[in-house]
């Protein structure tokens, strides 16, 4: 009785392990966080990029509009790629772009904007990267779509054609 029971359990355990590993193989091991979070916009006070005046987050997102909060830096290469999409979005009246200048210096960042154009309505600077943590961001580039003080969608990595269409669909 006992001698038959134990091997059966063993085989059963190994079969389950096999199935789990098999399924696990198909899952990607790259961490992708939930991108559709209805979270409140975190509060922050940051210096304005242009003139060092203090900007409070409540002031930025107060209108009943859509906002795209975009984390960027002049040293970030993928940011250059996504910039043209941001410039396209700029033309859209229904959305405002907020630039979140990440660990950058003024000189490089302004020449970056001079060369490629400035899509942002407001730019705040996050000198040490701590404010981006409050947003739950991973790094540059990363964008958050905000409406009525809620984050409705986040984009990790550069914005591409597909994302652009998605945004335009949401704000319509």
């Amino acid at each position: 009785m006992k001698s038959k029971f134990i091997p059966l359990i063993l085989i059963f355990i190994f079969l389950i392990t096999f199935v789990i590993f098999f399924k696990g193989l198909k899952n990607s091991n790259i961490y992708t966080p939930n991108t559709n979070l209805k979270k409140e916009v975190p509060l922050f006070e940051l210096k304005s990029f242009e003139n060092n005046s203090i900007i409070i987050s409540e002031k930025i997102f107060e209108d009943n509009k859509y906002y795209l909060m975009n984390i960027w830096a002049s040293w970030c290469i993928p940011c250059k790629e996504e910039h043209k999409f941001l410039m396209k979005l700029k033309k859209d009246e229904r959305i405002e772009l907020i630039g979140f200048n990440y660990k950058d210096n003024f000189k490089n960042a302004s020449s970056f904007l001079k060369d490629l154009g400035n899509p942002y309505n407001i730019i705040v600077s996050d000198k040490d990267g701590t404010a981006s943590i409050e947003w739950g961001a991973y790094g540059v580039p990363e964008s958050f779509l905000v409406h009525q003080n809620k984050i409705i969608k986040r984009f990790i990595g550069p914005i591409n054609d597909e994302n652009l269409l998605e945004i335009q669909k949401i704000i319509r």
Binding site: K103, Y138, G139
Partner: peptide, 26 residues
């Protein structure tokens, strides 16, 4: 450290980890 492969925030020197360490300090 979420953007690194299998390292702790303490051990990592990535931008994310450096900022996060600052946040912890604050």
């Amino acid at each position: 450290c979420l953007i690194c492969q299998g390292q702790s925030v303490y051990d990592s020197d990535s931008e994310f980890a450096i900022s996060l360490k600052l946040v912890i300090k604050n």
